[in-house]
């Protein structure tokens, strides 16, 4: 276990280094004059002009070499200083904290919701492979996974917000504002996690030890509780690690659609405006979060599966 955690720590350091250098190189490699892009981000399309771009260039010292700027970022990073946004002038750490906080709230709600929807349905389907629930679930989950977030979100708004008027369409600040965006993400997540749970359950239910449990006289519920759930949960938890990537991809669209002030939305804007400190800071924090989450998934699997503890 210590070895695994040590490996994750090493991974975190590597992530910091790679993310810092790669985002920097990629942003510099993007076409277009940075000073103009930053000026457009700051002053908007009505007010961006050459004077504004030149003022930005002088203010930020964009003429200095790339290596100087990258070196500066690393020396600041060592002092835990992520710098200042070149667009808003706010400290990057404050922006990341504010926006990442909203995104984590949304992602957490989405994952919990998806766990409520996906695995239970998957387990039900896996217990009777080929049954009505199984076939119905296959249809629904394939449809949901095939629909882009954008469409699912719009449909939910149209039905629940403008149609029935029970939930706010978009915005944030009220607890109810969280439900529709979280549900949009959760449906996509549950579409896949239900399939993973279904296949795992079908495998377990078809195994000799499961049949033996039934033979020795355990009821359906007992055999599921004693021999089913723990075995099924390992692939589901492992798969959670993979789903985080799907989540990051999803929040960009969902946050924009629901006007949720999260990091996905902010990152896209920062890239348009060539806000290098914000991009580097955000990518760094998100990279480290990935490492942390995967470490937690490892830890959970380690606790669930006694064979790993023995090894």
């Amino acid at each position: 276990m210590t070895r695994v955690l040590g490996y994750r720590l090493f991974q975190a350091l590597l992530v910091a280094l790679t993310v810092g250098v790669l985002t920097f190189i990629m942003i510099r490699a993007l076409p277009g004059d940075m000073a103009y892009r930053i000026a457009a981000g700051r002053y908007g399309y009505d007010m961006v002009n050459t004077d504004a771009a030149n003022a930005v260039r002088t203010e930020l010292g964009l003429d200095q070499g790339g290596t100087t700027a990258l070196g500066q970022w690393f020396s600041d990073l060592v002092r835990f200083d992520l710098g200042v946004s070149v667009v808003s002038g706010e400290a990057v750490i404050d922006e990341v904290r504010h926006q990442l906080g909203h995104t984590v709230e949304l992602a957490l709600a989405a994952v919990l919701l998806s766990l409520l929807i996906g695995p239970p349905l998957g387990i039900l389907a896996g217990l009777r492979p080929g049954g009505v629930i199984d076939r119905g679930l296959l249809l629904v989950s394939s449809t949901l996974r095939a629909l882009p977030h954008f469409v699912v979100g719009l449909l939910l708004i149209i039905v629940l917000a403008t149609g029935m008027g029970v939930l706010p369409a978009a915005g944030h600040g009220e607890p109810q504002n969280l439900i529709l965006p979280a549900l949009t993400l959760a449906l996509g997540l549950a579409a896949v996690s239900s399939r993973v749970a279904r296949d795992a359950m079908a495998g377990v239910a078809g195994s000799p030890y499961y049949a033996f449990g039934r033979t020795k006289g355990l009821s359906d519920a007992q055999v599921l509780r004693r021999h089913g759930l723990r075995n099924v949960s390992v692939p589901i938890v492992t798969y959670l690690g993979v789903q985080f990537i799907y989540l990051i991809e999803g929040v960009v669209v969902v946050e924009t659609l629901f006007a949720w002030p999260g990091i996905g939305h902010a990152l896209v804007h920062a890239i348009f405006a060539r806000d290098v400190p914000v991009i580097q800071g955000t990518a760094l924090v998100m990279g480290l979060m990935f490492v942390l989450l995967n470490a937690l998934v490892d830890l959970a699997c380690y606790l669930i599966d006694p064979r790993r503890q023995a090894a």
């Binding site: 369409a169 978009a170 924009t256 629901f258 006007a259």
Partner: peptide, 16 residues
């Protein structure tokens, strides 16, 4: 600030 026109319109329609 809501960037998407569709979202803005839906917020007007739903009364948000």
């Amino acid at each position: 600030a809501v960037g998407r026109g569709e979202t803005r319109a839906l917020m007007a329609e739903s009364g948000d």
